[in-house]
Amino acid sequence: MTEQQPRSIRLTDPRALRAYAHPTRMTLVGLLRRSGPFTATQAAELTGESVASCSYHLRILAKYGLVEQAPGGKGREKPWRATAQFTEWPDHSEDAAVAEAANALSGAAIELYFRRVLRAVENRHTLPPEWKEAEQFGDTLVHLTPQELAGLGRRIQELLRPYEDRDLDPARRPEGARPVTFVRIAYLDREFPEGAPRTVHPRGAAGDDEEQ
């Protein structure tokens, strides 16, 4: 990717939202953003999918503007690249079709995050001690208004933004920098009655008696 490309692409067409809600397609876009450009053959090597499958999924992604063919390549082996650094979609919509497709995409993304987090936990024993200490697994229950929650999200995004250029330009990465996925999930928790006391475990799972 180049810095001239847009920071994000926003999907609002229900067909595009449904098309992107596929784990292989989300994986391909993520790989292209970090390791692209690459061909369908190289995509197959990275994902374990067949070349034909990757080629098909890349064409679907191109149809909705998420990827495009990059310069270079020989014969039919054309490289692909992502069109933006991030993908956005509506949090809510008055259009029932858009709302349904956006919710389905959010669910698919969460499932993909969950599988990746599980793999990270399973392989955590192989990490150096400093990375084990730096990684974060936990939750905190706080009482917020909708406006406060939205503002908190903006502040977190502002904290992360100075590091985004490092993904595009390896020269900006300090020695020892490694790719880190920072997943942000905040939701209205209806499992806890309003006003009920709860012990906060900064690094443990909700309801656990011990920190992890």
Rank of each mutant, 00 (worst) to 15 (best):
Val98Trp: 07
Ala43Lys: 02
Trp131Glu: 10
Pro37Ile: 09
Ser106Met: 14
Ala206Cys: 03
Gly48Lys: 08
Arg18Ile: 03
Arg178Lys: 14
Met26Glu: 07
Glu194Asp: 11
Thr47Leu: 01
Ala70Gln: 12
Ala96Tyr: 02
Gln136Cys: 05
Arg33Ile: 00
Arg172Ser: 07
Thr126Tyr: 11
Glu130Asn: 02
Ala70Ser: 11
Arg7Trp: 01
Ala109Ser: 08
Leu58Asn: 06
Val121Gln: 15
Glu3Gln: 00
Ala99Arg: 07
Leu11Ile: 10
Val183Tyr: 06
Pro71Arg: 13
Leu141Ile: 15
Ala84Asn: 04
Ile185Leu: 02
Tyr56Trp: 06
Met26Val: 00
Asp167Ile: 00
Pro170Phe: 00
Leu168Glu: 04
Lys74Thr: 05
Ala82Gly: 06
Ile156Cys: 04
Trp89Cys: 09
Leu144Gly: 05
Leu61Glu: 12
Gly36Thr: 05
Thr126Met: 13
Glu100Pro: 05
Asp13Ser: 09
Asn123Gly: 14
Asp209His: 01
Val200Glu: 10
Thr87Cys: 02
Gln42Ser: 04
Gly48Ile: 12
Ser50Glu: 11
Leu144Thr: 11
Pro129Ile: 03
Ala44Gln: 06
Pro14Gln: 03
Lys74Asn: 04
Tyr163Pro: 05
Glu210Arg: 06
His125Ile: 15
Ser55Ala: 07
Tyr64Pro: 12
Pro37Asn: 09
Glu191Asn: 11
Glu122Thr: 09
Gly176Cys: 06
Pro37Phe: 05
Ala150Gly: 12
His92Thr: 02
Leu31Pro: 03
Ala171Trp: 00
Ile185Tyr: 03
Ile110Lys: 10
Tyr56Val: 08
Gln4Lys: 01
Leu31Arg: 10
Arg178Pro: 06
Thr12His: 00
Gly138Arg: 08
His57Phe: 12
Ala104Thr: 13
Asn103Glu: 07
Lys74Ser: 02
Gly204Val: 09
Thr199Asp: 14
His92Phe: 14
His22Ile: 14
Glu194Met: 13
Tyr64Gln: 13
Ala16Thr: 14
Val117Gly: 09
Asp91Ser: 13
Asp209Ser: 01
Gln4Asp: 01
Ala19Leu: 12
Asn103Ser: 08
